[in-house]
Design a binder for these strands. Sequence first.
DNA 1: TCCTGGCACTCACCTGAGCCGAGTGCCAGA
DNA 2: TCTGGCACTCGGCTCAGGTGAGTGCCAGGA
Lengths: 338, 338
Amino acid sequence: MLSERRLEVLRAIVQDYVGTEEPVGSKALTERHKLGVSPATVRNDMAALEDEGFIAQPHTSAGRIPTDKGYRLFVDKLAGVKPLSSPERRAIQNFLDGAVDLDDVVGRTVRLLAQLTRQVAVVQYPSLTRSTVRHVELLALAPARLMLVLITDTGRVEQRLIDCQSPFGEMSLADLRARLNSRVVGRRFTDVPQLVQDLPESFEQDDRGTVSTVLSVLLETLVEETEERLMIGGTANLTRFGHDFPLTIRPVLEALEEHVVLLKLLGEAKDSGMTVRIGHENAHEGLTSTSVVAVGYGSGDEAVAKMGVVGPTRMDYPGTMGAVRAVARYVGQILAES
Amino acid sequence: MLSERRLEVLRAIVQDYVGTEEPVGSKALTERHKLGVSPATVRNDMAALEDEGFIAQPHTSAGRIPTDKGYRLFVDKLAGVKPLSSPERRAIQNFLDGAVDLDDVVGRTVRLLAQLTRQVAVVQYPSLTRSTVRHVELLALAPARLMLVLITDTGRVEQRLIDCQSPFGEMSLADLRARLNSRVVGRRFTDVPQLVQDLPESFEQDDRGTVSTVLSVLLETLVEETEERLMIGGTANLTRFGHDFPLTIRPVLEALEEHVVLLKLLGEAKDSGMTVRIGHENAHEGLTSTSVVAVGYGSGDEAVAKMGVVGPTRMDYPGTMGAVRAVARYVGQILAES
DNA sequence: TCCTGGCACTCACCTGAGCCGAGTGCCAGA
DNA sequence: TCTGGCACTCGGCTCAGGTGAGTGCCAGGA
């Protein structure tokens, strides 16, 4: 077990290293922090911390830098979440309040997060998985051509064109629309399939084919739109990464372009509370030298999507976590209002 | 006036520099290209080219590199557009044919362009400015709540919720829908305002308010959706930029995040034919060390949007132009088919 | 048992000297 | 007008030496 002071030394190392970006030595530590002991003692503590794998030396006769494991301990035990200042909070609120629609909310959120944390921001669009149906509409564009419009409770609207094999009467259409809505409005996407399963049977033989087609398109839409989208921003902040550029930055940029990867990354985060994945804890190869701070957000008590930032493992965890949490909360409020 | 051979020397310099990324000297030139003259002669030519400002020396006793002006001459006079190989063409077609909707087309186009050119790709969504209306639909979601759906000939669907002051009868709604469609279907967005101008007058006094509201939302939608969106990809290719990283890449990444800047950039490109802007020809400060190759594309003879790539001024212009042109053509075909 | 000061050692980094070679400009001759 | 020759420039590489931050270890003191 590590003594109290050793933990304190680890904290000091992390803080200094995050600030200076340079390996930190025992003497500098005692000068910058009031540890109340001499450099020699700190050296012993450092040796112990190194034995445990919390810190490492880039080379002999250099200072120490935290390892992934060290950051992990720091985040779990030593670091709080730094709350934002009230001007910052007001700025967030003002900025987000200006949003006009969902796209705008997400766009602003990304910019805000990137700016506050000075890192790469990733914001997932509110997922439809937990969404409910507000309304389903069917329009006849032509005798054998329909349009299906799906409106969700999060304000998203999806539409699909449907080519039917046979013309479909206005009466039947109105009928289908009414029955469809009575079954699915207010229901969750995931429940829809079984709710409409037996619908074709209740129609005339002639219309069953078309009804089935419409239903299959509807279900397809639900599935497709459950596929999650996201927006990223602040990639320019990657230039603050380190000195040995191309090598470090390239895989990160590549990973960021693979939205699938990012969605998986966010998906791995806990639904509630904040998730911090440090360095090699990230499965994706290109992100092993980055940390991801993610958090769920939503209009109510339940998270409908996630957002987070990607930055170097050497990041200001308390500050980043504070910013991410604050932004997620405000976005949740905005979503709840609209 | 530059002699034929001097132009040939310039071409050789550009080609070698693009290939090797290193200043090219007179001896190396004569070895790699069959110029039929000695290095000394080439040196004289180089001196002349330097006097004219087409090439420059990074420092004394180094080879020459082309200036922006040199690239300009190269592109205008010396370089053709390199057609793609037929396997490449087939690959493009196959890849684009797999697209399921507009978003997918744009997404695939971006990835394709980025991959083919190994640079950053920028693709503008087909603009609605020149689009025509395929259908307008009005749905009553609640007595005093309507939904407006607008379908364009490019397959885009936009919708808006409308809160009316007073309830609106089913009859009036059907009436409005019919009259609206008869006036605007097949018409251009830009013509719609005047086509519906007098519509409220033909309704009962009671309904005029609502009709006006609907119309104003429709017009608003037209304007808003004319605002152009775009998608970018291949930013990881920026890492191939140069050796002196952070400084070069940062402003570029920043510029790429400003979609407004990119839209302006594409907007400055000619509607037809290819536009190449080299280095300082780009107004935006962050892009003065990049070149932009842009081209319009569209479903018919007319361009509905633009696409292009952003890369270092030291790029393979013939190849890039060939790839951009080919992709634009195929995308045009895809759009025309759907 | 834990902390401290002292001491020898390591090693990345900086600096300056020296060499090398690619590249240039100029000039006289074909 | 082209060519070969020649002196010159200068960035980049390598090598050696000096510097200093940092370490590990140890003996002595609280």
